[in-house]
Amino acid sequence: MRSGSGTDPAIGRSERDSAALWVENLDKVYADGTHALRGMSLHIPAGSFFGLLGPNGSGKSTLIGTVAGLVRAPAGHVFIFGHDVVAQAPQARLKVGVAPQDVHLDRFLSVREVLTYHGRYFGMAAPDVGHRAEELLEVFDLTGKADTRPNRLSGGMRRRLLIARALMHRPRLLVLDEPTAGVDLELRRELWTYLRRLHQHEKTTVILTTHYLEEAHELCERVAFIREGQLIAEGSVDQLEARYGASDLEGAYLTAMH
């Protein structure tokens, strides 16, 4: 991926710097020939709750990997609050918290340590790390399991821990890759409540990928449809329904994908 120094002058720099995520002409081909992203461009304003919808293999996780600095794209630009994810990687990474689709937790650490070590990897000072970890354990109802190893937690608890870990260093941009996959209805609704509160009170920008369209409808202010590595539509739920002549988001999604 090119660095941000040589960007197109037509790009409004102030607009780019104020956006939570600015993706421009992103392209990614994996070694096996899979063309995951094809000139993807996406602008997500700060403070928004944004949904990314698309079928499996549409490029959502690759896009998230690029934002997290885990996937390097050969062409295009990604800016997080004005920081280029390649040229200014440390600054950009400090502003992002990612809860990946697959639950990967360090099995040598306890639940509390998963949070404290993450905080320390992101440079939090020692007293702050302890307070923040206890706060998140409380919020995600994990206090009783604080000294347990993650591999002994239930699937729902692990999912909660993953989201708590992503929030540990107080990121301004939270990226949730299918956070409620395999989670029961009760917990899903609890997570929705917490995410809404986080978004409204702490002004955290949230990017959510999900296959549950009612979840996107419930939470997201704006939604983008992605297919075969390209953005095919973007707007509010009402705008997308009107554009595809559908009565609900599901109808709009199905029309857009076929």
Binding site: A89, V98, H104, Y121, F122
Partner: peptide
């Protein structure tokens, strides 16, 4: 181990050089 089990992503996405 970290790579095989995937938790290396937590370290790789950190601001460390």
């Amino acid at each position: 181990q970290a790579k095989n089990e995937g938790y290396i992503e937590d370290v790789l996405s950190s601001p460390m050089r």
